[in-house]
Design a protein around this nucleic acid. Structure first.
Length: 300
DNA sequence: AATCCACGCAACCGCCCATAG
DNA sequence: CCTATGGGCGGTTGCGTGGAT
């Protein structure tokens, strides 16, 4: 037999999340981790389906999210990635720690598409618009998916690498108007650390979000303060020096893995691997990290 | 001041794939 | 091996907001 159904949807709440719901979800996840999304709403006391909880967490409540507008460099990188991956937003998002596929997808549809059109570039084919106009205009949808054609993931990566290294010997000229950007930059890792430090040093998500959004015209409304959930956590903070050292090492490992070139690409998913690193431990260690970071800043 | 309209974003829908049983 | 389900993903929708008239 298979598994039980995800949810019956009868009597379940839909639409925008309230502060109380956000609070419940975050508190529950931070205290218990995620083992089965279907069980999360029941155990957290939410009248939502598991899918809805998952989306809310991934797209909005996750502590490692980087809020705020996209930089021009990020946009350029998105364009590059889209030119070779097509609308595979999750794959694209994997290159941007702290960004969600939904966020990137929305940004593409609302901003980048227009920007490319203004630059005279077809956002679907990534070719100059004049070139596209020779073709049938009604084929947009087909082209959108045909960008990646039938290549496998590995083949695409190989093709891209070949194009990057030998752009002129690829049979045809690179049509992309934007310079290819390496998939992992120092800025990226710096942002990673920045996010991490903000999370450790200032658990007030509202402040965090506002800090990030001040430079943009878009205003996010933080739905809750992490202070409260922090106060609900029952963790013994009395630790021996050896335990502290162990935790320090664990955290350093986590930071290192988050900032290493190889992991950054998949960092969003890997950091959410609750099997590998339960949120209880993470929470405890973050708290510890916060304390030791303040006490012994030279160690970091 | 009121209405309309365009835009941006959060959330939902439905399909697909991996996997438990 | 087969079936049913959970979770992930891309596409789409609907609502809130701000600017234009």
């Amino acid at each position: 037999m298979g598994r039980q159904p995800c949810c019956d949807k009868v009597g379940l709440k839909r639409g925008p999340w309230t502060i109380e719901e956000d609070h419940k979800l975050v508190s529950f996840i931070l205290n218990n981790g995620i083992h089965c999304w279907r069980m999360v709403p029941k155990l957290a006391g939410l009248l939502r389906c598991g899918k809805s909880c998952r989306l809310r967490w991934i797209n909005y409540l996750r502590p490692d999210l980087k809020r705020g507008g996209f930089t021009e460099m990020e946009e350029d990188q998105i364009i590059q990635l889209h030119s070779r991956l097509g609308n595979r937003w999750s794959k694209i998002a994997a290159h941007f720690p702290g960004r969600t596929d939904n966020e990137i997808k929305n940004h593409w549809n609302t901003r980048i598409k227009k920007r490319l059109k203004l630059l005279g570039v077809d956002p679907v084919t990534h070719k100059p618009i004049e070139e596209k106009e020779l073709n049938d205009e009604g084929e947009d949808q087909k082209k959108e998916t045909s960008v990646v054609e039938n290549k496998s993931e590995g083949e695409e990566e190989d093709c891209l690498e070949a194009k990057r290294v030998f752009p002129e010997t690829n049979g045809k000229k690179m049509s992309n108007p934007v310079e290819l950007v390496t998939t992992t930059s120092l800025d990226e890792t710096h942002d990673d650390l920045k996010c991490y430090e903000m999370w450790c040093g200032n658990l007030d998500l509202g402040t965090w979000m506002n800090q990030e959004t001040n430079t943009t015209t878009t205003s996010y409304s933080p739905s809750f303060s992490m202070e409260e959930s922090k106060s609900n956590i029952n963790i013994s903070m009395v630790e021996s020096p050896s335990t502290q050292h162990h935790h320090h090492q664990q955290l350093q490992k986590w930071v290192d893995s988050s900032t290493s070139t190889s992991t950054t690409v998949d960092s969003i998913n890997s950091r959410l691997s609750w099997d590998a690193f339960s949120s209880n431990l993470l929470e405890r260690d973050l708290f510890f990290f916060e304390n030791t970071h303040l006490k012994y800043p030279h160690n970091f």
